[in-house]
Design a binder for these strands. Structure first.
Lengths: 225, 225
DNA sequence: TAGATTGTTAATCGATTAACAATC
DNA sequence: TAGATTGTTAATCGATTAACAATC
């Protein structure tokens, strides 16, 4: 099948929807390749990588070939090159400006977390309705009143909105975000957002993650009996 | 196929491994059923639920029947009963005591988050190596030195350890946890933990979640062109 | 009883793994 | 060149959806 340049420097295969199973694995490849680079490893075969990552070599080659041929027969993959290409695919080659809505425990924790910035995810402002928080700063990032959200979004080029507010407030804020043209929402609120099809939502439902752990713990205990 | 009582009051189907795809969906069923209860809905058919949850009715029935027949032909499912049964399956019918290791941004945010307690996830202590934090409290939960972790685990019946420390420290702490008999780890550190097969690990890799969002945002932008 | 809806089997679809020709 | 390893097609496996008999 022919591969073509989509205009952003990333090779994408024509007319082929990438499955979400593949997308979920990309950041993990990125992480392992970053570690390999830090270790000074220059090249790696799908076989070697499969052992480290505990997946099949076949899956690695299949996954990568969704985006183009990054390897070389008889050689394997150049670690730095592959890392760079996956970075591009993941959109880490440009800044992704963010706003955080909700300056509670998680909103503050995310704002304080330096690592996102290293990957180009830069928080420009935090929004909250609490008058005691409005006007303060978190790691130099201003906390504004949620009433100013629409105005701020119109005046600034924001790519990603992070929702760390109670679910009751999330519906209303989501409407504002969509109206202001936000196309990506990182949702920590415990509800499924209703958005137009051109808006992508990535959910982080911590309590659901914890329940899965609890299930598997209980299941393992039952097996023993 | 015959269903039998595994001794914990939860009906489980014999000799059948539940797929992780099913397990991931359980907390969402639980959430929707909780919402329905709050709305005063007494019964619901798989068809009605499928519309609300945006999945197929077939999938709902298949998923539930992994654990037993909770419905009734011609009637549907009793919301309160099904909610209760799924709660049991998820291990929410008993307390799950936790320790949080790492009193940084996320450790504190998780400790401050009241909601986990409502589901039986009770944090008994937080551990950190920072002498300025040791001896303080977060929402009444004591912060102890990580050196005391093994001793604390021996003296208290802790079910779940939450890892919110940098990855460099995570390997060593994980060894201590495993040695002390911890069987469930909720891992926020950016590495894949190496644990015995009887220890379950649930990963929350926030930066990987954010990268998936970034990918999908970039992909949607490419499509438009 | 008749209608509704489950529990469950069968069919379909998609994702993973295996195999191997192409090629560096 | 010969050996290694990719890119890619084919085979397998598992998960989802459809269909319907069982039954409340």
């Amino acid at each position: 099948m022919s591969a073509q340049d989509a205009g952003n420097g990333v090779l994408t295969v024509e007319n082929k929807e990438i499955s979400s199973a593949v997308i979920k694995r990309l950041p993990r490849y990125h992480r392992y390749l970053g570690d390999l680079m830090a270790q000074g490893v220059e090249r790696i075969s799908s076989q070697e990588l499969s052992v480290r990552m505990n997946v099949t070599a076949s899956q690695i080659r299949q996954d990568l070939n969704n985006f183009g041929g990054f390897g070389q027969q008889g050689y394997g993959y150049n670690v730095a090159y592959l890392y760079q290409e996956i970075s591009k695919i993941l959109g880490l080659d440009h800044e992704n400006s963010m706003v955080i809505i909700g300056c509670g425990n998680f909103g503050q924790a995310l704002a304080n977390y330096q690592n996102f910035e290293n990957r180009g995810f830069v928080t420009k402002a935090i929004f909250d309705v609490n008058p005691e928080k409005v006007g303060t700063q978190v790691r130099g990032i201003p906390v504004l009143h949620t009433d100013e959200l629409a105005d701020f979004l119109h005046k600034n080029d924001i790519k990603i909105a992070v929702l760390t507010i109670p679910k009751e407030a999330a519906v209303e804020v989501t409407k504002v975000l969509v109206d202001c043209g936000i196309k990506a929402i990182w949702n920590f609120a415990h509800l499924d957002l209703d958005v137009p099809s051109d808006v992508v939502v990535e959910n982080v439902h911590l309590s659901e993650s914890l329940m899965q752990l609890s299930y598997r713990l209980a299941e393992a205990a039952n097996k023993k009996k």
